[in-house]
Design a protein around this nucleic acid. Structure first.
Length: 616
RNA sequence: CGGAGAGUAGCGCAGCCUGGUUAGCGCGCAUGGUUCGGGACCAUGAGGUCGGCGGUUCGAAUCCGCCCUCUCCGACCA
């Protein structure tokens, strides 16, 4: 579409986003000329003078296709684990991706800003996240000894701006975003740009006077995110997510299904439910009715696991009740769950209303009077121990549970006849093959790359940091916030994951670092080189970004590099076709070849046609 | 943090088990020449603290110990 814009529209586009990389350069020049300022030179990009360090072989350190290809194509280089340099080819694509993000963010009223990368630690202490983030936070002291952190995200910083500057409901809503480098000292970086420690992120923050206005904007940004990923050629799945450390109520993740993904989500075969595994819900069957039998103690020597007990007594694991102990900052938690299910710690933490939980130690378990391996919900000493019963338990009958005595279990335990709970909640991990809570369809677990995440934060940060405004009644109220992230480097890698073959990358035309590579097979033949330069210049003037491959290398190497780089159209200027006053065009996506007259007009025409079809 | 694997020239690897001249191979790189349409060929050449430190030994890339780094699986992950 940019190639078909009218000039008037273009000027508006330029004013809106002067750095947009999707605007053809010729029009930028026109724009510049009409204001009588800079005369940008249109120097051809010559491969012989450009930095394109390609590798013939797969690097040993990479596993994922995108990681291998980015290293081989000379896009990135590693400095340390999870820390990369973006070389020119990668930078060019990033400009385009960032351009798309800026257009979509600007279109919903976003204002681009840049916040500091270095934050005083005390700012993070205000919200408690200095603690919560723990070792993931990069920290150092400045020369005065003040504790500083490397920003892993920017809720605190933007909320600090908000509390200083936002006074009245009349100023709202406000939407800010930035595209910036973040640092998170992840315990395990992996997959190149898929999970890096230093990475580029688009993070956005919105401020609202009401929950309703946040809801309204949330729908807008949700759509903007879909636009961004669709324009990048990525079929994302939107997934209900757990807000986790960020806090807040509603949250969605934008996932690209991929076998190498760093994340997983669960999806109904009928497409009406998709959720991150952390928060996924599935149906739990009710046991067929059977009379409740009296509790009876049975000897189960050496049966410390559910499997052992079930085997020993000859019952299925789903006829047992499993005891699992956790510790929170406040208390010990005793979870009772059906024996065939696992506890989902994220769901448990939410049910408890606490940020952090971790498995209890044997000592802690023993301290409350429970016998590890034989712990029982019956007769557990209740002081200081919170009993959480998974909602699978009330639906089950006559379960086998621990007897709280070494070597013994109880048969026919029933809730609530035999024991009570402080909380009954769904704290079970959803499993592959479980049934969908919406339609009863089968659930499948899929690996995926998390590309974006949006949150309704509510007032978590504004309350903690005292960011208030005066509402329509003149009363001070905490700002209602949302935050919205996209992993830009990860997005770049994801595009390659979704668009490549054995020979290299296959960029969607509007993301490609160059749309055309003009390969002069014998650059030392003056005539051929001149023809290549003329055609490259003509393409450049027509608004395409052109790489002139004038390197003195064998034709085979140049063809292979062109495929590796994934440039959508290859224009071959060689002696064979030149004899008939022709050149050859080859489309990267399917290898289709076309002979064209070596006239600039004809070449530009054909290239334009090929690119139109190559759009994602 | 738990488990597994790896570190030898820019890249990919052999050598190590069974210690012994000057540490190899392929690719790449430099120079000269021949080539020139799907990763050419010939000749010459540069390039190595064998991850680091310590130990054993007459002698260590090779055996032992400690440490560092990287990769994969898991835990973790706005």
């Amino acid at each position: 579409m940019p190639f078909a814009l009218t000039e008037k529209l273009f000027f508006r586009l330029c004013l809106l986003s002067p750095y947009s990389s999707t605007v053809p350069r010729t029009w930028k020049l026109l724009f510049a000329k009409s204001f009588g300022n800079l005369q940008a030179k249109m120097a051809l990009v010559r491969a012989s003078r450009y930095f394109l360090p390609t590798w013939k072989e797969d690097p040993a350190e990479a596993e994922l296709p995108s990681h291998k290809l980015m290293l081989r194509a000379g896009m990135i280089r590693k400095l340390a684990a999870g820390i990369y340099t973006y070389l020119p080819l990668a930078r060019r694509v990033l400009h385009r991706i960032e351009g798309i993000i800026r257009e979509e963010m600007d279109a919903i009223g976003g204002m681009e800003i840049t916040m500091p990368m270095i934050h005083p630690a005390e700012l993070w202490a205000e919200t408690g996240r200095l603690q919560d983030f723990g070792p993931i936070l990069g920290r150092f002291r400045d020369r005065a000894g003040r504790e500083m952190v490397l920003g892993p995200t920017h809720e605190e910083v933007i909320t600090d701006i908000a509390r200083r500057e936002i006074r009245s409901w009349r100023q709202l809503p406000l939407v800010f975003y930035q595209i910036q480098t973040k640092f998170r000292d992840e315990p395990r970086p992996r997959g190149g740009l898929i999970r890096a420690r230093e990475f580029t992120m688009k993070d956005g923050y919105s401020f609202h006077e009401s929950k309703e206005d946040l809801d309204r904007f949330y729908r807008e940004i949700y759509q903007a995110y879909l636009n961004i990923f669709h324009r990048c050629g990525l079929p994302v799945v939107v997934v209900e997510a757990d807000p986790g450390l960020m806090g807040g109520s509603e949250s969605h993740e934008f996932m690209l299904p991929n076998p190498y993904g760093e994340d997983s989500f669960i999806q109904c075969e009928n497409g009406d439910y998709a959720a991150n595994l952390e928060g996924a819900v599935s149906l739990k069957d009710e046991d067929p009715p059977e009379p409740l039998l009296p509790v009876e103690e049975v000897a189960t020597p050496g049966c410390y696991t559910i499997e052992a007990v079930a085997n020993f007594l000859g019952v299925p694991t789903r006829k047992t009740a499993k005891a699992v102990f956790y510790r929170t900052p406040k208390e010990l938690v005793f979870v009772v769950i059906r024996g065939d299910l696992e506890v989902n710690e994220a769901k448990l933490a939410r049910a408890l209303g606490t940020g952090e939980i971790w498995p209890a130690t044997e000592e802690e378990i023993a301290a409350c009077g429970a016998v590890p391996g034989y712990a029982s919900p019956i007769g557990i000493r209740r002081n200081g121990v919170k009993v959480v019963v998974d909602d699978s338990i009330p639906k089950a009958r006559n379960l086998v549970a621990g007897a709280n005595r070494e070597g013994f279990h109880l048969r026919n335990v029933n809730f609530p006849r035999d024991f009570q709970a402080d909380i009954v909640a769904d704290v079970a991990m959803a499993r592959e093959g479980d049934r969908c809570p919406r339609c009863g369809g089968r659930l499948r677990i899929q690996r995926a790359i998390e590309l974006g995440h949006i949150f309704k934060l509510g007032t978590k940060y504004s309350e903690a940091m005292g960011a208030t405004f005066l509402d329509r009644e003149g009363k001070p109220r905490p700002l209602i916030m949302g935050c919205y992230g996209i992993g830009v480097g990860r997005l770049l890698a994801a595009v390659i994951e979704a668009h490549h073959d054995e020979e290299g990358i296959i960029w969607p035309a509007h993301l490609a670092p160059f749309q055309v590579v003009v390969s002069v097979l014998n650059p030392d033949h003056d005539e051929l080189l001149r023809l290549g330069e003329d055609l490259a210049r003509a393409l450049d003037e027509a608004g395409f970004e052109v790489l002139l491959d004038d390197r003195d290398q064998s034709a085979g190497e140049k063809f292979h590099d062109a495929k590796l780089w994934g440039i959508p159209v290859l224009l071959v200027v060689g002696p064979r076709a030149a004899k008939q006053n022709q050149v050859e065009l080859e489309r990267r996506a399917d290898g289709a070849k076309f002979a064209v007259s070596a006239e600039p007009k004809a070449v530009v025409e054909k290239v334009r046609e090929l690119l139109e079809r190559a759009r994602a």
